[in-house]
Nucleic acid binder design. Structure first.
Lengths: 202, 202
DNA sequence: ATCGTAGTTGACCGATCGGTAAAGCGCAAG
DNA sequence: CTTGCGCTTTACCGATCGGTCAACTACGAT
């Protein structure tokens, strides 16, 4: 065939969609191949195993997340708090998008994968943990900015960022369970009230 | 055999352990039967399908949660805020227990199941949603108590309870991803700072 | 003593699982 | 023209999947 070089990419795309909308254990490589229009033997030419495919999907997801969510939220010209607000809004828009497209609120791809696989595949767990830490760091940077610009009073920004990130993950999980992205709008703003180690002066 | 009547219970116990420590899609009914010392045909005498077994496991998990976590947290003689603090502590103790026993932090059984199954099985999703709402209601009751006793200033307790619950779920998910229950201790207290609809007077 | 029934057993179903092997393809470099 | 190679195709592997089935056992009620 001539469609040669994009075969890997089509496999990646199909796998991303299927793994995100379903799960690791409930999606077979046969199904991924069918959606991509690729033979199974060809799959194993590009990926040595389902596990490696999953790691590649995770990495690609991270790139997409940065493009669609993070770069649209953490704009340098915005204040720290405005950045955090934008993050919530962009997450809402993303979740609402999938709901309108396929009728389902899918939640966080990393959180989903972690729930299922963290106890079963140590390599995947560590990859997930690394990606999650990077996102958490983005929150901390925004918080540091907010602190530096006087938007918030002094606190432990590292711990607060971790707590805010936990809140976001839980928020997406609950939105998925209710199959309703509006939950993000309804209670998302509570994230901004989270604080750890606040030195309550004045 | 003579072990007749407890066969169903042994199946339930095995399934609970396996589904919690692994996942739905990665645990087969054969494996559940083996652990329970039960023949597969016998399994289908008690449960019409893997789905029904899962629903039963969820219900039993809820009973256990109430015994091990909720009843030890929401003691009527305690103040609302003390109850919420106790909840965090009991969750920590529980997660730390599994880590010490099997070396892994398993997170929330409902959150795990929801992540994997909410998009694939509507019946399971609804059951999960119902259980989660009940737990959220417990938080609201504690918050109302705290408000009534003057521990906190007026706010939207229903929305605040939902936000606190989201935080807890995210907290357990992150602890699972890091495979470290200590995270619950490190940032768990942030839950108490969450507030929605606070009418900031004075 | 007999019958109904709850429970058990082990074989079996077609389908799918992740993964392998080998042969064949088009194409570019020699 | 030929060789080598990236890629594709097809058939296949043993294992497991969720679920079914009929035969069988043990026991309690009549």
């Amino acid at each position: 065939m001539k469609a040669s070089t994009d075969t890997r990419q089509r496999l990646l795309d199909s796998a991303r969609e299927l793994l995100y909308s379903r799960s690791y254990g409930n999606v077979g490589v046969k199904e991924i191949c069918d959606m991509a229009g690729v033979q199974k033997g060809s799959f194993y030419h590009f990926f040595p195993s389902k596990q490696e495919l999953t790691l590649a999907v995770l990495d690609e997801f991270f790139i997409i997340s940065k493009q669609e969510i993070f770069s649209r939220s953490f704009r340098p010209e915005w204040s720290g708090m405005k950045q955090l607000n934008a993050l919530l809004e962009n997450i809402y828009v993303f979740q609402k998008g999938t709901k309108e497209q396929i009728g389902k609120t899918l939640g966080c791809p990393y959180g989903n994968m972690s729930s299922e696989m963290s106890t079963q595949d140590e390599v995947i767990r560590q990859r997930l943990n690394g990606l999650l830490q990077q996102m958490e760091m983005s929150l901390k940077t925004a918080l540091d900015k907010a602190l530096h610009e006087g938007e918030i009073s002094p606190c432990n920004t590292a711990a607060t960022a971790a707590a805010m990130f936990a809140f976001i993950e839980g928020l997406m999980l609950l939105a998925k369970t209710r199959n309703d992205p509006e939950l993000i709008r309804e209670i998302g703003a509570a994230m901004l009230t989270i604080r750890i180690g606040e030195t309550a002066i004045s």
